[in-house]
Nucleic acid binder design. Structure first.
Lengths: 68, 68
DNA sequence: TTGTATATATCGCAATACGATAAAATTATG
DNA sequence: CATAATTTTATCGTATTGCGATATATACAA
């Protein structure tokens, strides 16, 4: 299972969803969906913007957790 | 820019594209596209399978490289 | 050469992102 | 508490894109 940790990075950067929205250029609705892991896919362009905005790596935002 | 490093992980695991294809369950054509970074998006389900097959994290396969 | 592995291309369909928008829900804040 | 600000959720429409199926091309061994 892939877990999205945008919320963790937002906390770490002390950044609001609103600010991330402005930086990334998506609608707030979609940023929210993304943040809460309610997407089934992601465009690399979008991931790129997120990493740039949060100054982080994809690995900070995406996590694989096997079931055990 | 987001770089896909599936090829790096394949080398590290000494795994062929053919074997990855079998494990992941996609067609070889698509695995090849993926491996060579010729996709514009990726389903989390697919990323999940790749991480499972290569026993790695998304961060091992996806890399953000800012331009500088 | 002959086979095997990998890459590239095209077509079609289904899945899904994303925008726009509205409404609900949550969380500050006075 | 009241009200504003923020965030979440939902719906609809469109555009994008994954992915399968398939064929062909290329690379690479034996």
């Amino acid at each position: 299972m892939i877990i999205i940790n945008v919320d963790v990075m937002l906390a770490k950067r002390k950044m609001s969803v609103t600010e991330l929205t402005e930086r990334v250029g998506l609608t707030m609705a979609n940023v929210s969906l993304l943040k809460n892991g309610k997407v089934k896919a992601i465009r690399l362009e979008t991931l790129n913007k997120i990493c740039a905005a949060l100054n982080c790596q994809p690995g900070d935002v995406l996590e694989y957790r096997g079931d055990s």
